[in-house]
Design a protein around this nucleic acid. Structure first.
Lengths: 154, 154
DNA sequence: ACAATCTTGACTAATTTTAATCAAATAAGT
DNA sequence: ACTTATTTGATTAAAATTAGTCAAGATTGT
């Protein structure tokens, strides 16, 4: 790791990853001490690496018993969204509907463009060389499983 | 070896060759010191010998802990590799063989870890709820199509 | 001699680190 | 309760640490 800010960033992200609810709560001075840097460096790291843009909410309190709390929200939202999609998919799924769902996932930035293309290909009727009604059932099963992979990663 | 730029070029290429992932990461000032030249000479060498044209990607960061990272990308090799995999896949494909291919693709850095997991899921017999021998045929078809998506992108 | 390439250094830009000062919340003393 | 002191985070600005650009001068090849 190249510099102190990166190290602290990694440390905090690790804490969030290990946490139950995508949250970490720290005492600024304590972390500064741990990494042997000035306290305000924590503010710098937070301001440059835990922005709202990147899906973090930062709350803090001063005074005795003060703290800084960093919450990662995007994953929650994404999880909710993916759960929603899972509910949407019934026993069967047409190619058109599947493609709409894939497009939606791409728009929601849950999957990359390449992943979208891969999944599109997988659920195409030309790829699944099976007759109806079985084809729609397999397609639903495939997409459900893919969503679960994304949902339960990390 | 006639001049400093050539020497530095050779040095960097040597580093890349010895590296695990066709990457070298340097500190500009440090290399300049090592070869007793001005730092900006590194920029010259990189600009003239590690161009995108020649298959290199250069990334950098300034400030404390800054760096210059040069990555060699072997697009041709990857294409050859993927073609090879396509030839490998016959009319049918067992889950075990498919998983080996997926692992290989991940090792070759042709797919990401997440993509590997997605594809693993898709080709699992639990996902493809079809009986043999049809299942192996569909699996082969799916993997072939996925590889083609990756092969013919961009 | 001419053209292309290389070397050098001054200046610029980005990023990180550090310190000083400010503001808010709590704790303590009266 | 009220005032004061202490603790703790926020903000800002300065300094330090890198890398990038550009252009003038030097060297080399033809």
């Amino acid at each position: 790791m190249r510099n102190m800010s990166d190290i602290i960033e990694q440390y905090l992200k690790q804490m969030i990853a290990e946490s139950k609810n995508e949250v970490v709560e720290i005492k600024r001075a304590q972390i500064a001490e741990k990494f042997d840097c000035v306290p305000s460096q924590l503010n710098y790291v937070i301001k440059t690496r835990f922005t709202n843009e990147l899906g973090y909410i930062v709350e803090s309190k001063r005074g005795g018993g003060g703290y800084i709390r960093i919450t990662k929200i995007e994953t929650h939202k994404k999880a909710d969204y993916l759960e929603h999609l899972l509910n949407l998919i019934g026993d069967g799924l047409s190619q058109t509907n599947a493609m709409h769902i894939i497009q939606s996932m791409y728009d929601a930035e849950v999957i990359s463009f390449r992943e979208a293309k891969i999944i599109d290909t997988v659920i195409a009727r030309e790829t699944l060389m099976i007759g109806l009604p079985k084809r729609d059932i397999v397609r639903a099963q495939i997409l459900r499983n893919i969503i679960e992979v994304i949902l339960y990663e990390e």
